[in-house]
Simulated assay, not measured.
Amino acid sequence: MQVGGKRLVFDGGTGLHVLGQSLLRQMPTTAHIFFTHSHWDHMQGFPFFTPGFVRGNHFCIYGAIAPDGSTVEQRLNDQMLHPNFPVPLQIMQADLDFYDVAPGEPIKIDDIVVETAPLNHPGEAVGYRVNWCGGAAAYITDTEHFADHLDENVLWLARNADILIYDSTYTDEEYNSPKSPKIGWGHSTWQEAVKVAQAANVKTLVIFHHDPAHDDDFLDSVGKQAAQNFSGAIMAKEGMVLEVPVSVLLSETFPVSHI
């Protein structure tokens, strides 16, 4: 997200390498990187984030302390130790500042306020909401819905948001499949995404965090069904750029792509 002249990056899966290659044309560069949690699909791109190896760049890195007590710095460090990676985190020449996130406590970056809340995911995860000049975008991924009620933390992050990027990994049928149920896997469905968007008065719902087993035709079908149930629903696609209206003359864009 590009907000108030600053770059905010959420999670660091394989797409972080692609972002890094584009930032090489803009160095020296600065960004704030927010991790929801440390499962591989959200961290494994960080060792391949080329700007991190370049002196003069500066990255502020945020993440909650894990249930085992490890910080985001420790977990990024550990994934780059042998036998997983040839060089350690310390070889990165960019300035890396690490911050522990306390879910429920806001993070202030000048006039940008990033609200946080815990999510329902194995090993825990954090959801984020970015507020700036009257505009709001919520990033809520790797969270499992509850069977009997909507998650109050999710509703709070999503409240009246211009854009809600929500974990819609499965369909209800897949989630409750008698042959291979996904209950307890820590992910939600596009049908639950629609319920949240409607209840939270969201303007645009982005169907996000696609199951790797879903091909483009399947996702196109889900996108059409979601839009029929909620007119503001769209399917996340790589390279998509969405713009959030704000109460100043500046025009800010919020890029959304699946990582």
Score class of each variant (00 low, 15 high):
residue 252 E to F: 06
residue 195 K to C: 09
residue 145 H to N: 11
residue 81 L to G: 08
residue 53 F to R: 12
residue 160 N to T: 11
residue 46 F to K: 04
residue 43 M to A: 13
residue 255 P to R: 08
residue 171 T to Y: 01
residue 90 Q to V: 06
residue 69 G to Q: 07
residue 125 A to Y: 00
residue 53 F to T: 11
residue 71 T to G: 07
residue 136 A to H: 10
residue 150 L to C: 02
residue 72 V to F: 14
residue 48 F to N: 15
residue 16 L to A: 08
residue 192 E to G: 00
residue 11 D to W: 05
residue 157 L to V: 07
residue 250 L to W: 05
residue 37 H to T: 10
residue 196 V to Q: 03
residue 183 I to L: 13
residue 36 T to M: 15
residue 116 T to G: 06
residue 118 P to E: 02
residue 244 V to A: 09
residue 58 H to I: 02
residue 158 A to V: 07
residue 127 G to H: 01
residue 120 N to L: 04
residue 145 H to L: 07
residue 173 E to Q: 15
residue 115 E to K: 11
residue 77 N to K: 14
residue 152 E to M: 10
residue 183 I to W: 01
residue 184 G to Q: 08
residue 44 Q to C: 14
residue 186 G to H: 08
residue 177 S to I: 05
residue 43 M to G: 02
residue 209 H to V: 08
residue 130 V to M: 04
residue 113 V to H: 05
residue 125 A to T: 05
residue 93 Q to W: 03
residue 34 F to R: 01
residue 222 V to F: 01
residue 222 V to T: 03
residue 127 G to N: 01
residue 118 P to N: 00
residue 97 D to V: 15
residue 180 S to R: 14
residue 220 D to L: 07
residue 74 Q to A: 15
residue 134 G to C: 12
residue 66 A to P: 02
residue 34 F to I: 04
residue 156 W to Y: 09
residue 177 S to H: 09
residue 164 L to W: 03
residue 181 P to S: 15
residue 233 A to N: 13
residue 92 M to P: 02
residue 162 D to L: 00
residue 47 P to T: 10
residue 210 H to K: 10
residue 68 D to E: 12
residue 133 C to T: 10
